[in-house]
Simulated scan of single mutants.
Amino acid sequence: MIFDPILDLFRGKAVTIAPLDGAFRPNTALEEANLAQAVAQPDNLIVHGGRLLFSSGSDLFTFTPGGTPAIQRSFGAPISALAASPGGHLAVALDDGQLFVADREITLPQGVACITAMSFGDDTSLYLCNGSATHRPGDWALDLMEKNSSGSLWRLDPATGAAVSLADNLAFPNGVLVDGQSVIVAESWRHRLLRLTGGTVTPLLEKLPGYPARLAPASGGGAWLSLFAPRNRLVEFVLQEDAYRRDMIAQVPRPYWIAPSLASGASFLEPLQCGGIKTMGIHKPWSPSRSYGLVARLDNAFRPVASYHSRANGARHGVTSVAEYGGYLWVGSKGGNALLSLSQKG
């Protein structure tokens, strides 16, 4: 239409989403993966002291393949992040803003109360993602719907408690990994990875098809990246409609917002998401979805080279964390209440 260039000035920014193609070509690897353990909302997988650790709500679990998860410790609030240092120190962050390193509580700077991810550079450097200056980690959907970008990255000395801000105005930093002299950060609401070198922040991987979460080192170099929910055009459209979002936040229960989700399909009150509903009793795997399961393998340059999926008609959605351990990739499907394992041999 010849008037489109003029009308576009009033339509706002076009809604465009990177397709699931190339290294992100859909498959059913997560749906077919071995169910190591059914557990409520597994999250924050790390290797510590030769053991696999993960969180479930306010409980910290240890897990031995072939065995049953055992509670190592329980806290007074849900665990929002875990990290292990080269020297064996364990850092535990809670949804209420508390941080413990080697069982000692650390006093954090004012405004740092939303720790979504952590990574040790060495025993004297702990990098913290402060997802939001106004919300807790569990309120991530509200932070997205308010279109906030008040997150920050910090470096903390656990011994002294001294903290230095390395970057601010981040749109919900949700994953961090030390890579030599650089720090890699996953910025969820801008669908990208950033590299911080010295005082310079540069985009590293942009236009991801989902919302990135935790990063984990991969054997042979590179990293694993969890993407906890898919992007879709309906959510992107709603993010442009400020009045609608304000009314939705005020009047609609949070589980039924037009927003990304770790799991979907449990209630007929959920937004239908266009083609995401069942047609003649069948949920199409390629249909739009509020939730999805996705893990990406990144090479040494942090370029995606492979991915594992649980598609729209699957159940192993909401992957927030992965870890390599004992020759397997362990995957926490928080939305699917499942701890999965995939062999990395070959």
Rank of each mutant, 00 (worst) to 15 (best):
N34Q: 14
N34S: 08
L35I: 14
A36H: 02
A38R: 03
A38P: 07
V39F: 02
Q41N: 11
Q41F: 09
Q41H: 15
Q41E: 15
P42A: 03
D43F: 05
D43T: 14
D43R: 07
D43W: 07
N44K: 09
N44H: 11
I46V: 15
I46F: 06
I46C: 01
G50Y: 12
G50W: 01
L53P: 05
S55R: 04
S56E: 02
L60V: 11
L60P: 05
L60M: 09
T62S: 15
T62N: 09
T64Q: 13
T64I: 12
G66V: 13
G67L: 11
T68G: 06
T68W: 01
P69I: 15
Q72G: 11
Q72D: 15
R73W: 13
S74I: 01
S74E: 10
F75M: 06
G76L: 03
G76D: 15
G76K: 05
P78L: 06
S80Q: 08
S80A: 11
S80E: 11
A81V: 08
A81M: 05
L82N: 04
L82M: 04
L82P: 04
A83W: 04
A83P: 06
A83C: 13
A83M: 05
S85N: 14
H89T: 10
V92Y: 01
A93R: 02
A93H: 02
A93S: 04
L94P: 07
L94R: 05
D96T: 04
D96H: 06
D96V: 06
G97E: 11
Q98D: 14
Q98N: 14
L99F: 05
L99P: 01
F100I: 12
F100D: 02
V101Q: 06
A102W: 03
A102G: 12
D103Y: 09
D103R: 05
D103S: 15
D103E: 15
E105T: 14
E105V: 15
E105R: 15
I106N: 04
I106S: 07
T107F: 07
T107A: 14
L108N: 14
L108D: 08
P109C: 12
P109M: 10
P109S: 08
Q110C: 12
Q110D: 12
Q110V: 13
G111Q: 12
G111L: 11
G111P: 10
V112S: 03
V112D: 09
C114W: 03
C114P: 10
C114Q: 02
T116H: 03
T116Y: 02
T116P: 04
A117T: 02
A117Q: 00
A117Y: 02
M118C: 03
S119Y: 06
S119H: 15
S119D: 11
F120R: 07
G121V: 13
G121R: 09
G121W: 06
D122A: 09
T124S: 07
T124R: 15
T124E: 12
S125L: 13
L128M: 11
L128D: 04
N130I: 04
G131Y: 07
A133W: 08
A133T: 00
T134S: 03
H135D: 11
R136P: 07
R136T: 14
G138Y: 01
D139L: 01
A141P: 00
L142G: 00
L142Q: 10
L142C: 02
D143A: 04
D143M: 08
M145F: 13
M145T: 01
E146K: 00
E146L: 13
E146N: 00
E146R: 05
